[in-house]
């Protein structure tokens, strides 16, 4: 990985691509949700562990979305801004180029996770669930962040516009999230159960219940972690494969 490129990417993401403002927006949204939940009657009817689960889902969703937007535009913006040719003419390898941009998107996501830490601690205050909640947020959320950032950067390499890259990655996120919200007959059907068993997002959501509501031991939820690990590994493999296909605008 090239340090100069990583520094430039972080600078660009934070200042030029409004990454810092996105961080402020995430914090405002989380604050608004927290104030609403803490003060309305319906919010008070919810269990603390339930609120915690919703908060973790919201944090993960926002973090992944921001990382995907930044990752999905990283290569396309170089092509659209005609700076790709100059980059490819340096001795920096295509893989190193990809890795630098990917790391930048992941670091920004990690910063957003860090911003959410006080919220998670505040919501879980007094329940004894803070460590578990943070572990879910940082480890499971981390795996999903690695995976979706890799997918977004890959699409940024493989497609010709940032809109397409972000849209395709976002669509994949929604599609993978869909089984997690499946209810009733669909959820109990063979297809529903198969998807639920394989879907990394659904598994991430599912493991929250035993860990936060039932306070089960971490060893009992490993079955839900594997799909996320496999998904992250496949996404990174896609990124490595895509890195060989970096090309100039219109060349494809």
């Amino acid at each position: 990985m090239n340090k100069a490129m990583l520094k430039k990417e972080l600078n660009e993401s934070m200042f030029e691509s409004k990454g810092l403002w996105m961080m402020v927006a995430v914090s405002v949204i989380l604050s608004a949700l927290l104030i609403v939940v803490a003060n309305i009657k319906e919010g008070a009817a919810m269990a603390q562990s339930d609120i915690l689960q919703y908060a973790i889902k919201a944090v993960m969703f926002m973090t992944i979305m921001v990382s995907m937007v930044l990752g999905g535009s990283c290569f396309v913006s170089e092509r659209e801004g005609h700076t790709m040719e100059s980059l490819l003419l340096t001795p920096v390898s295509k893989f190193s180029l990809t890795l630098s941009k990917y790391t930048s998107a992941v670091i920004l996501g990690a910063i957003l996770y860090l911003v959410s830490v006080p919220y998670i601690i505040a919501i879980s205050y007094g329940s004894g669930l803070a460590v578990r909640a943070l572990l879910i947020c940082l480890l499971n959320g981390g795996l999903l962040l690695l995976a979706f950032s890799a997918i977004a950067v890959s699409f940024s390499i493989l497609t010709d516009s940032s809109k397409t890259a972000i849209l395709v990655s976002g669509l994949l996120l929604v599609v993978l999230m869909f089984p997690a919200f499946a209810q009733g007959i669909l959820k109990q059907s063979l297809i529903g159960r198969t998807f639920l068993a394989m879907d990394p997002l659904a598994n991430c959501f599912t493991l929250m219940t035993p860990l936060l509501s039932e306070v089960a031991s971490i060893g009992t939820v490993t079955q839900y972690i594997w799909p996320q690990v496999i998904f992250a590994a496949l996404s990174i493999a896609l990124l490595v494969w895509s890195s060989k296909r970096i090309s100039l605008k219109g060349e494809k």
């Binding site: 927290l34 104030i35 505040a122 007094g126 329940s127």
Partner: peptide, 20 residues
């Protein structure tokens, strides 16, 4: 089992956006 601590939640909800 336990309840959301409204005071802590509100303090964090107010401070965090200002900090960010």
């Amino acid at each position: 089992a336990s309840e959301l601590n409204k005071t802590v939640a509100t303090i964090v909800a107010v401070i965090m956006p200002i900090l960010c």
